[in-house]
Simulated scan of single mutants.
Amino acid sequence: MKEAIAVSTVDFTGVVWRKSSRSGNGNNGNCVEVSYTGPVVGVRDSKNTEAGILTFPESAWAAFLAFSS
């Protein structure tokens, strides 16, 4: 049985975004920005920051980074 995930609203107003080190040098235009806001990690397209934010629990983001290393 999978663990239930609580859904809540996260306010990303005023957070600091940084370009992901996994985006490469940016020459191909495929860049993402990442923001850590406590238990949630936000990810957005650096070329279209108004398009929306994907959010992940911090534990899921850590697992993704470990898997992609």
Rank of each mutant, 00 (worst) to 15 (best):
F56K: 00
N28V: 06
M1L: 14
A62V: 06
S20Y: 00
N28K: 06
G24D: 10
V40E: 05
K47T: 08
A4W: 10
S59D: 13
I5L: 15
A62T: 04
A60W: 05
T49V: 11
N25G: 15
S69D: 13
W17L: 06
I5Y: 04
S35L: 03
R18W: 04
P57L: 09
K2G: 06
N25A: 03
D11G: 01
P39R: 08
E58I: 14
G24H: 00
V32M: 10
F64H: 05
T13C: 07
S68Y: 12
R44H: 02
V16N: 05
V32F: 08
V32R: 05
R44Y: 08
K47A: 11
R44K: 03
V10T: 12
N30M: 14
A6S: 09
V40Q: 06
G14W: 00
S69I: 09
E3V: 05
C31F: 00
F67R: 13
I5Q: 14
A63F: 06
C31L: 00
G24E: 04
A51P: 11
T55D: 06
A4M: 12
T49K: 07
S59P: 03
E58H: 11
S20V: 01
R44N: 01
A60Y: 12
S68G: 03
D11Y: 01
E3D: 14
I5P: 07
A62N: 15
V40D: 09
T49D: 01
I53G: 09
S8I: 13
T13A: 14
S8M: 13
S68M: 08
V34A: 07
C31T: 06
K19Y: 04
N30E: 15
G14Q: 03
C31N: 05
G29I: 01
S8V: 10
M1H: 10
A51E: 15
G42E: 01
A60N: 04
V7P: 02
V16S: 13
E50G: 07
F64C: 13
P57E: 13
G14K: 13
Y36P: 05
R44S: 01
G14V: 00
G24T: 06
E58Q: 13
N30F: 15
D45Y: 05
G14I: 05
A51D: 15
F12L: 12
S20D: 11
A4Y: 12
K47F: 08
K2V: 09
L65N: 12
R22K: 14
